[in-house]
Design a protein around this nucleic acid. Structure first.
Lengths: 160, 160
DNA sequence: TATTGTTATACTCTATAACTATA
DNA sequence: TATAGTTATAGAGTATAACAATA
């Protein structure tokens, strides 16, 4: 065993990119979750679907799954919850009876326009103190990393 | 319902920072996981503990939990697994019989020096194409976001 | 009384497969 | 045969609480 090799260039988990990235992402996600979970009682899946549907009325479950990085099983179940809460309605596609166009109900839209500004204000607060240029560079690097890491586009993710 | 408000400034989940951040982090984490999971058969918790212990021999379970963002229950259980595999040994602290100093066995160190270079090479590959200055700025922004999001330092996280 | 670490348990999330009804 | 969506189930991860031993 080469002891030198163990000590020469000490590995710090905290400085290791994926760890740092995931850790930061988890804390940022938690911070946002305060709004939609504690303040509005939405689950993470419900939040993502609300946010997605609010901006893209009338899409189908399959597209919704792609947009939100949730798998079709979770989308299906979350939609049932959201229908029961009266936030979402389905409109069968006459051309394809298997699928349905999804809509926010008035109640759902009301929730959307209530949460969205808060989420945006939160995002703004998070960004305050970060230069616009630095932020643009940050986004660019994120895109590059996602591109590099690539991987399975069907990969589902938990946080918002 | 103000339809204008819904369409005026469309919200794109994909451009929303926490979503983008978590999504990128998940894919980057998956990419690394190929190495320690598929190539070496380590779980994520095992990988983090190995990486941590390799660099900081002799720490105790409590410090290990803090370093790895794993809770003490998971650390305790993962250490049992790793002892059984012969990678980790415990040395009771004579000054505090409740705790133990943790060590990698020779077998554990061997695994460490085998995985580490691969992880670093993977990281280097991920970074190739990204300017050094851009990367420094990226790390700085991550730190700023973590600082801002702050939150519970005991927060446990799943990915590497 | 408080702390370190272990054990137990319930809950959620995830992955997979099987199923239906359509196409 | 293939696809959209649903249902079922097993496994992994997470959060909590209770506990033993020691401080």
């Amino acid at each position: 065993m080469d002891k030198e090799m163990l000590e020469a260039d000490p590995f710090q988990l905290d400085d290791f990119l994926p760890y740092k990235l995931v850790k930061t992402a988890a804390h940022v996600a938690d911070s946002l979750a305060h709004i939609y979970e504690r303040e509005f009682g939405l689950s993470r899946a419900q939040w993502r679907i609300l946010a997605s549907l609010g901006a893209r009325e009338g899409i189908k479950a399959k597209e919704l799954a792609e947009e939100t990085s949730l798998d079709k099983v979770r989308v299906s179940r979350t939609l049932v919850e959201m229908e029961q809460k009266g936030w979402v309605s389905k409109e069968r596609d006459a051309k394809d009876q298997r699928a349905a166009f999804l809509h926010l109900t008035d109640k759902g839209k009301q929730l959307y326009v209530e949460i969205l500004p808060k989420a945006r204000a939160w995002e703004k607060g998070l960004m305050s103190g970060i230069e616009w240029q630095e932020y643009q560079s940050f986004l660019k690097t994120l895109d590059a990393l996602l591109e590099k890491a690539g991987g399975d586009p069907r990969r589902t993710i938990r946080e918002p």
